[in-house]
Design a protein around this nucleic acid. Structure first.
Lengths: 147, 147
DNA sequence: GAATATTAGTTGTTTTTGTAACTAACAAGC
DNA sequence: GCTTGTTAGTTACAAAAACAACTAATATTC
């Protein structure tokens, strides 16, 4: 905290929103390489692919609820993924407002590769910390994010 | 981690870039209220004000180096703060490429208020954690951010 | 000291995001 | 059955960020 005689307060690095943001940025930028450079995907798109690959077919709304991304972001991500042929839509016959989204075989393959990369990334990441640190870090972040 | 028989890997919430991002987002959005709603400032502008208020007059380049924000972002932030009369520029006579940036009295007053709000925010934030958790969280985040 | 390179900062253009208004389908109330 | 309300998703427009090209000043090199 470094309170000092001039009462200027803490250093920026001790300000949690800043520190969290810097840590998140640094990490995101690293992982971007996998989905951006190789598959031309945006973060939103990668998240959608992850959701559909990991949890199965669902509607855009369900992805919204799970991630608290805004629906317009999802709508555009879905459009982009569709034009890349990674995803297909199927309109629910009992409620024609709903679109069930699912990965195409090609999309599933991309998910497989990215998911593998993500697991490796996470494993490497974990090596930065002791077991106790990792546990506490994860617990604290979940609490902050309200998860 | 929840490894399961289908080998689908972890949940998104256990993927560190995602978890960090969600935590950073949640926190940033809360603190935005202070600088955005009250002073019409953007995050970049708040960071610039913080730097000048906390560490004294410096050039745009120095702010760049300290924060790894891109220089165009800083340039526009400085312009916006100048038109709000929170900041003034002074060209270095020995090297006329350099502009020494500093807060106006009005800017200094705003810094004082925001800095106070930031300290309070940080103190409230700290209450989410035990002393040990807070220490470890901070240490881990710094390591991740390379700080 | 003239050509070249580097540095600080700006400007212009393109992407991406955020916000609000919209369409289409369904649901409720009467 | 016809208003009124709600929900899923899209589209249009404005704000912000990213990226590249630029200007002006200083350094370097020969």
């Amino acid at each position: 905290m470094s309170e000092n005689s001039d009462d200027l307060g803490f250093d920026l690095v001790d300000f949690m929103p800043y520190l969290l943001n810097q840590a998140a940025e640094a990490t995101s930028i690293e992982f971007q390489h996998f989905y951006k450079a190789r598959y031309g995907m945006l973060r939103t798109e990668w998240r959608i692919v992850f959701h559909l690959g990991r949890y199965g077919a669902m509607t855009a709304k369900e992805i919204c609820n799970r991630t608290n991304m805004h629906k317009t972001k999802i709508s555009r991500g879905v459009g982009a993924l569709e034009s890349k042929r990674y995803l297909k839509r199927e309109i629910d016959t009992s409620d024609r407002r709903l679109e069930k989204l699912s990965l195409t075989p090609q999309g599933a393959r991309v998910f497989g590769e990215l998911n593998k990369a993500a697991q490796d990334f996470n494993a490497d990441f974990a090596r930065l910390f002791s077991a106790e640190e990792g546990l506490i870090l994860r617990r604290c972040l979940k609490r902050i994010a309200g998860l």
